[in-house]
């Protein structure tokens, strides 16, 4: 909330507006303000946000025209109640459905096209094609919120977006809720003596994720052993595994993140030659998750854990 400063020695007539203002402030402070309709108390502008590389970005006032070029950032913005401040999101931001999707690309950003939406804040996941340089040349603030490596990164990004949009309280509430749901999922799975082995599939050419990725960290929290970790030497985060190795590792659980892109499901996996003997295939422990949920690091990680954790719990009971 803004306080208006008045010059010393104002004429008595000028006191009337100040009295009105003070009265209004008094009244609004007493009334409980709905969290989503105005800036939360405690958010001051200008605010400085730390950026990768050690720089900071200063946002002078509450942004009203946000352009999001990152699907995860879009999900976060809508989850913290900044939806009315978002005027355009990129072509990959398909959640929530009410997000104002445009043809803007986060991969091949077109600075002119972005400027066409007269944004006062731009948010992206990576600085490709000179995006940061271009937006800064327009004297606009741009926040880069890169792929999170673990849940703490994700919570930090939600907090940053909360501070940047004037929804710090909602952001903190969301983070607390996520922490407690994650904690509940983690508590619900036992940590058996022989950890269950998991294979997470990104596409049908056997690209997988190691524990150095966001999704890999989720599996680690759930106490699973990721078979792709043996390939960390080849690629630290997204190795392409050999079919022979996957079959011989005999994973207990297979999570398919290629149900939409490559039309894979338990049937197609089971019919791959040599795969029918895998423990996960024999016990039917092949889960398909939405490709988007598995590739983003926003609030829907809870949905991801909802899909995976109960199955892990079930497998551990059966083991």
């Amino acid at each position: 909330m803004r306080t208006h400063e008045h010059k010393a020695g104002a004429k008595p007539a000028a006191l009337v507006p100040s009295v009105v203002v003070v009265a209004l402030l008094f009244l609004s402070a007493c009334a409980s303000s709905p969290a989503t309709s105005s800036a939360s108390p405690g958010t001051r502008f200008p605010v400085s946000i730390a950026q990768p590389g050690g720089t900071t970005v200063t946002i002078a006032q509450r942004p009203r025209r946000i352009v999001s070029l990152s699907p995860t950032a879009t999900e976060m913005l809508f989850a913290i109640g900044a939806d009315s401040q978002v005027v355009a999101v990129d072509d990959q931001s398909n959640y929530p459905a009410s997000a104002p999707k445009t043809k803007l690309s986060g991969f091949q950003p077109n600075i002119e096209a972005i400027a066409g939406y007269t944004p006062d804040l731009v948010i992206a996941a990576e600085d490709t094609g000179g995006l940061v340089h271009g937006i800064q040349a327009l004297h606009l603030p741009i926040l880069i919120e890169p792929a999170a490596r673990n849940l703490d990164d994700s919570y930090l990004q939600i907090a940053q977006l909360g501070a940047a949009t004037g929804h710090a309280t909602e952001a903190a509430t969301l983070v607390a809720k996520m922490r407690s749901r994650v904690g509940a999922f983690v508590a619900s799975v036992a940590k058996p003596a022989r950890p269950l082995r998991i294979y997470h599939e990104l596409d049908n050419t056997y690209y997988s994720v190691t524990s150095a990725t966001f999704i890999g960290q989720i599996y680690k929290l759930l106490g699973l052993t990721n078979i792709a970790d043996a390939a960390t030497g080849a690629a630290p985060d997204y190795p392409q595994l050999s079919a022979e190795y996957i079959v011989s590792s005999n994973p207990d659980l297979i999570v398919l993140a290629d149900t939409k892109c490559c039309a894979q499901d338990i049937g197609t996996v089971g019919s791959r030659p040599g795969w029918s003997g895998i423990a996960a295939v024999k016990s039917g422990a092949v889960i398909g998750v939405d490709d988007d949920i598995a590739s983003r690091w926003g609030p829907r990680v809870i949905d991801f854990m909802q899909a995976v954790a109960p199955r892990v719990q079930q497998l551990e009971k059966a083991a």
Partner: peptide
């Protein structure tokens, strides 16, 4: 290839060549 970012990795992987076999198929 550039406009379909969702399938970028599969396309690139295919172009580089790989003897993935569907068994003997």
């Amino acid at each position: 290839q550039q406009s379909q970012t969702g399938s970028l990795r599969q396309v690139y992987s295919w172009i580089l060549g790989r003897l993935t076999t569907a068994g003997w198929d």
